[in-house]
Structures are given as C-alpha cells and as structure tokens.
Design a binder for these strands. Structure first.
Lengths: 128, 128
DNA sequence: CTTGACCTTCCAGTAACAGGAAGGTTCATA
DNA sequence: TATGAACCTTCCTGTTACTGGAAGGTCAAG
C-alpha cells in the first residue's frame, strides 16, 4: 500500500512516516514508480511506534522496543535486559498516570471553589 | 531557595526550569543578587510539570493542566471541560500503557524463540 | 488529455530542550 | 583578606523529533 493508506491505518502523518524512514526505523519497499510500498507488518510497526511515542518513550527507546520484535533470535540477555527495564519504566508511568488521574479528578469534583490556593492536592503532589 | 535546590527537589534540570520561565510557565521571585528565588509552591508546580511532561503531555497541555491549579475561581465551564478532556486522555494512556506492558511481557516470557516473525502479538497490536 | 489527488525530494521552521562560553556571587578556607 | 570551588546569570548554538511548503513527477477518472 502507499504511504497515504499506511498513514491512515497507523494514525501517523505521512511526514512522520518518511522521517522514521530517514532515521532508519522502517524500511518499506519501493515500487517501480518510486512510491513507497508498505506491507501489513510495516503498518503494525507504525502503530506500535505511534503508541509508544505518544506514551512518552523517545524515538531511541522506541527503536529498542522495535528491536524486540525484529530480533529473530531473541535469546540474548541484553535484549531481555532492555525489555525488563522497559517493563519497569512502563509500570512507573502507569503508576504516575494513575496518580495524575486521581489528582485531576479530585480537582474537578471535590475541590471546587474557595478552598484554594492552599489546596491539599498540591501538598499531595509533592510527596514521594 | 535557589534554582539548584529547586532542581534537586523537582527532578528537573536547572536548564529546563529556566526554559519554563522563558515560556512563562513559572514566575519565581528574584533576590537582590539577581538569583531566582523559588518557594515551596513553585517546587510543587515543577514536580507536576516534570511528571506530566514525562507522561507524554505537551508543554502547552501542561500549561492547561497547570492553569487548573492556578485558576482561583475554578467554577468556569471551560476549565472543567479541559480537565474532563484530560481525564479521558489519561484513561486512554493508561489503557495503552497496560496493553504495551502486556505485549512486552508476552514477548519476554512466552514468545521466545522460533514462533516469529509471525508472532500473534503483532496481530494483536493491530487491533482497535 | 487535463484535472485533482496522490506521490517524490529538499529545504526551512518549530518545539522542547541541552551544552557551553563568559562573567558575576557566595562561602569556606588559607 | 584573598583565592578557589561551587554556585548563579545571560546569551548563543546544537539536537531531537518532527511540521510546512515549494517544486515537480504519477495516476485514475471524466
């Protein structure tokens, strides 16, 4: 498929997809007309990139995560180490998002009006 | 306190803190010597910025989130709208992180060796 | 066979910092 | 009192991860 369809299916702008090719993240085939030609597996990778980028992982981290998929012989210890480190990082992000959510919900529902600016939530945020 | 201590307490590099001042996110006092002087509430805001940035919110989104704290009369509907939109976004991020975690864990523990590259996880990732 | 919607490369701009130079301030120590 | 380390300041440049736009080739429909 062309880049437009790959863009539509992955959610990434075509510009970004070309950029990811520039920096060597994805290597689509080329048709005789010079157009990029994406397969279903490319779209999977693009989706994955879209997600992990939006979740605060850097492009280099995404490159590592992607390597976990592409490594055919995933037995090596360093690959496992990377994955384990990412798992810890993901858990931390989930915890922080959950806290952020609680804080925000508190602000919206409970803390309306006059009990500011010395709202206890600000204190709460400074913990840990 | 000076910027160094504010940096230590918030986890943000001093460079970043100065940048956030440049773009109008935080307005610390200045001492007679020209040094920036941060209060405890400033540190709270910096912590908050640190977190929300690392979770994939843009600086402009962080500015909105911060406005929720700073808005003394938080009765206005648009502020509530912003907060509600952020809550939805946070929920989505949590869901996606949870999926990413599951995927990664699967890769590390279950999917080792030869069942690739047509691993079912890639199919799974393409859903939704 | 032209029109519009694709696609291409290339170059410039933006966002969100990070590094480093050049210089002022503060504080412990000699 | 002086000197040196460890702070701080502004300013300017560089990097990352895109984004927009120009200039031009391709393709399917009318």
């Amino acid at each position: 498929m062309n880049i437009g369809e790959a863009s539509g299916r992955s959610g990434l702008p075509a510009k970004t997809i070309r950029y990811y090719e520039d920096i060597g993240l994805i290597r689509p085939d080329r048709g005789d007309n010079g157009y990029r030609d994406y397969g279903a597996d490319d779209v999977h990778k693009l989706r994955f990139l879209h997600r992990s980028r939006s979740l605060g992982f850097s492009v280099e981290e995404c490159r590592q995560l992607l390597a976990l998929y592409e490594d055919k012989s995933r037995a090596s210890a360093d690959v496992k180490d990377i994955a384990t480190a990412k798992l810890i990082e993901i858990d931390r992000k989930i915890r922080e998002l959950t806290e952020l959510r609680r804080t925000l919900e508190h602000l919206v529902h409970a803390c309306h009006g006059n009990e500011r600016p010395d709202c206890p939530i600000l204190e709460e945020l400074s913990e840990e």
